[in-house]
Design a protein around this nucleic acid. Structure first.
Lengths: 121, 121
DNA sequence: CATCGTAGTACCCAAAGGGAACTAAGATCC
DNA sequence: GGATCTTAGTTCCCTTTGGGTACTACGATG
């Protein structure tokens, strides 16, 4: 039983298809950076906040919760003191990292072709 | 003369690096869909609005303007009546489509692994 | 002279993003 | 035993962005 209109074949161009929502989740600056930050092993909240330069704790929490909800990352709490929370990629998250890493790499590799961003004359 | 702190090597994890802004532009639902919609040839505003199911004209205009500003798409006005405006990819836009297409394809191919989105039990 | 089609803009409201300050819980210092 | 530290957030408030509906401009067409 489906509630979306896209019964068999999925299409990101269909607003009611769940993969549109998935695209919305992944095609997001903070999601792309957060997943990438976990690529080489688990990280704690503070480490992620440092790595994702410029993110506010509120937005980072929201991003991580969304990713966790969808099964892209795991959140493990170590009830030590001070509290210790570790985020890590799931298998699904690792897979999602592939296209996201390609996008990040493209941005870095091609930034010089964007004069309006690099402040060139 | 640069105003950003990331003098030589670019890094999306540096908030002041221009490629962070580029990532923000590309890692966006509407950008990814709009660029993809132009992959197989120029399209008019109305055609894009139809293709990007669920987009409001206001948001579509804003998205296209941003992409045009950065040189990813061209906007050509044919002063016929009724007015006719055609959007097409630049060479830069075509290149950017590669990682974005991969991301869209990943979403479609892996949506079944997201029970929370597909409404599975 | 009213209507149509195209490509938007204007207006208004809701949601998300963002910064700074604050909280909780216990260990550790003095 | 009270002050202080650390970690992982939450809360508040404000700004920005997203989103829907209605409206405009333009001349051709009936």
């Amino acid at each position: 039983m489906r509630t979306d209109s896209c019964s068999r074949q999925h299409d990101v161009y269909d607003a009611s298809c769940p993969c549109r929502q998935l695209l919305d989740l992944l095609a997001n600056k903070w999601s792309a950076l957060a997943l990438g930050a976990l690529e080489d092993g688990p990280r704690r909240f503070g480490a992620l906040r440092d790595r994702l330069d410029g993110v506010s704790p509120k937005v980072l929490t929201a991003t991580l919760r969304r990713l966790e909800e969808q099964g892209l990352i795991d959140r493990t709490v170590y009830p030590s003191v001070p509290l210790h929370v570790e985020y890590s990629l799931t298998a699904l998250g690792e897979d999602a990292c592939v296209p996201l890493a390609a996008l990040r790499r493209w941005a870095v590799a091609n930034i010089d072709r964007f004069p309006a961003l690099t402040g060139a004359a």
